[in-house]
């Protein structure tokens, strides 16, 4: 008989005991160890994921800050450029205006110096011309010249026409002042009589006449009455000469001033 039933029962019991033993010592510890390891790996992976997420967040934050810094730097640079260019423009403008001011001042000074020089020259010329003329006339002055002057003066009185004469008469009667005759030289009695006679002829009213001697008139004679005046003297001619010289100098100054203004505008 190949089957021994006691052995069958014993082997069945042995097998069940072996099942229990292996469950106790093999399957359970091994499965527990595998589970623990899987749990640990899962935990490690979860931690790694969490760290990865945190790192990603930090990276994003870092990139955002970097971007902001770049933008700030860009804006600061552009602002600085604007400010620098503005400052440069302002400094250039200031320098230009200062240069223009200096140039203008220099031109004004130059013009003033030129004017002063021109005035000095013209005054000197006038003075020289006056002194030469005065000296010449004084050297030449004699009785005949004085007589000629008186004659010319008398002639001029006689030449007073209607309206001028009427104005003279009106002034005399209104002011009731004396007629004043000023001359560069002392008038002789004859000459004074001649003048009085002419005045009596001209002016119907009898006016008082006063004679004064004033050498500044330079070989001349002058009648003033009530603000009106009739005169002849070399000083008049000299004054005319002086005026014309002054006009000449002013014309030269104005003609020099025009190109200067043009040069300023060009600068």
């Amino acid at each position: 008989m190949l089957i021994d039933w006691f052995t069958v029962v014993a082997q069945a019991i042995n097998f069940l005991i072996l099942v229990w033993l292996l469950k106790r010592f093999l399957y359970q510890p091994i499965l527990d160890a595998i589970d623990a390891r899987e749990q640990r790996i899962a935990q490690t992976l979860a931690e790694a994921d969490a760290k990865k997420a945190a790192a990603r967040l930090e990276r994003d934050e870092f990139e955002r800050k970097n971007r902001e810094l770049d933008e700030q730097r860009q804006s600061m640079v552009s602002r600085m450029q604007d400010e620098v260019s503005g400052l440069r423009q302002k400094l250039l403008d200031d320098a230009q205006s200062a240069a223009e001011r200096l140039q203008t001042k220099w031109h004004v000074n130059l013009q003033r110096q030129q004017q002063r020089l021109g005035e000095g020259i013209s005054r000197r010329v006038q003075d020289e011309v006056f002194s030469i003329t005065r000296k010449t006339i004084l050297d030449l002055a004699d009785d005949d010249l004085e007589a000629s002057i008186i004659n010319v003066f008398i002639g001029r009185l006689r030449q007073l026409d209607g309206e001028a004469l009427a104005n003279f008469v009106q002034a005399l009667t209104a002011a009731e002042a004396a007629v004043r005759i000023r001359s560069a030289f002392e008038l002789t009695d004859e000459q004074q009589t001649a003048i009085r006679q002419v005045l009596r002829e001209i002016f119907p009213a009898d006016a008082a006449v006063r004679f004064d001697c004033e050498p500044e008139l330079i070989a001349g004679i002058e009648l003033t009455a009530g603000g009106r005046r009739v005169a002849w003297s070399i000083e008049d001619y000299l004054k005319t000469l002086k005026d014309s010289l002054g006009d000449l100098v002013r014309e030269q100054d104005s003609s020099q001033g025009t190109p200067t203004a043009e040069s300023e505008s060009l600068a």
Partner: peptide, 8 residues
Amino acid sequence: SLSTTAAL
């Protein structure tokens, strides 16, 4: 042994 295999 057939006893063992039979038991199993």
